[in-house]
């Protein structure tokens, strides 16, 4: 299942405006404005001006919040998004109670909020570093969905499930056949491919974000094979159901 662009010209538009460039602009723009995000539960709140707001929207970081304030636009970032801007791109400071937090402190905080955060973050940053747009996949029962470019131009291609066998009991998804049926059936219905990102810590700990570099990511798709549709040649024909496509 290749990319499904939304309407004519979307592909050309995406090609002319690569995501890496938009993120680069966001990077310098956030640095210039010395942006600070406020740690708030499992979210990081960020208030920005028009230019940053435009870049955050175009690069799909966070969700805009509706407030009465006219001069400021508030964004709510997920933990992965915030930590990516903070730790990987180094263009966002995260504060709690007006007190700036170190990378290690934020890492500990986010880990305490979600035991799987190290794996989810590794998966998120892995795809982001390849310039894929990564957004929440919760409505598809997945961790993330991955887009080739902005969701306005293209449908998401993958529903991403993050898996780590090292985590044992904390990660029990896709361990029984009915889960595999369920996930592939759902993905097929919304024209996505199920992508499992297997994170290995390779013996390294989860104590500090500096361990992330030693983690490895293996990409695997799980697809259903239909013997009735694949008799002719070697290409695996996926069942397509464009009518029910997602965002």
């Amino acid at each position: 299942m290749g990319p499904r662009w939304k309407g004519k010209g979307s592909k050309a538009k995406a090609l002319a405006d690569p995501m890496s460039k938009i993120v680069l602009q966001l990077h310098s723009c956030l640095i210039q404005s010395n942006s600070e995000g406020l740690l708030c539960g499992c979210s990081v709140l960020l208030s920005v001006e028009a230019q940053q707001a435009d870049l955050l929207s175009r690069s799909c970081f966070g969700e805009t919040m509706v407030t009465v304030e006219k001069d400021k636009q508030w964004f709510e970032l997920s933990m992965e998004e915030a930590f990516y801007l903070c730790y990987a791109l180094k263009c966002l400071k995260i504060v709690e109670d007006q007190c700036p937090k170190s990378d290690d402190q934020i890492w500990q905080y986010m880990k305490s909020r979600s035991a799987l955060f190290p794996y989810l973050y590794k998966a998120y940053s892995h795809l982001r570093m390849k310039n894929w747009v990564v957004m929440s996949g919760i409505t598809y029962g997945a961790d993330f969905v991955a887009y080739r470019h902005h969701p306005e131009l293209v449908h998401s291609e993958y529903a991403v499930i993050v898996s780590s066998e090292e985590e044992g009991d904390a990660d029990k998804r896709l361990r029984v056949w009915s889960d595999i049926h369920c996930a592939t059936r759902l993905c097929g219905g919304v024209a996505k491919t199920l992508l499992v990102l297997d994170i290995s810590r390779n013996g390294h700990s989860v104590d500090s974000p500096s361990c992330l570099e030693s983690y490895t990511v293996k990409e695997r798709t799980i697809t259903r094979w239909n013997p009735e549709q694949c008799r002719e040649d070697h290409t695996i024909v996926e069942s397509e159901n464009g009518a029910k496509a997602g965002i």
């Binding site: 056949w177 049926h181 592939t184 992508l195 990409e219 697809t223 094979w225």
Partner: peptide, 25 residues
């Protein structure tokens, strides 16, 4: 490789293929 799951009288086939997502521009 493909994997077969026969359950409740149904035969299903699945691929668990290693892929490598491209680095996009």
């Amino acid at each position: 490789l493909k994997f077969c799951n026969v359950e409740q009288g149904r035969v299903s086939f699945f691929s668990f293929d290693t892929v490598e997502l491209p680095v996009l521009p």
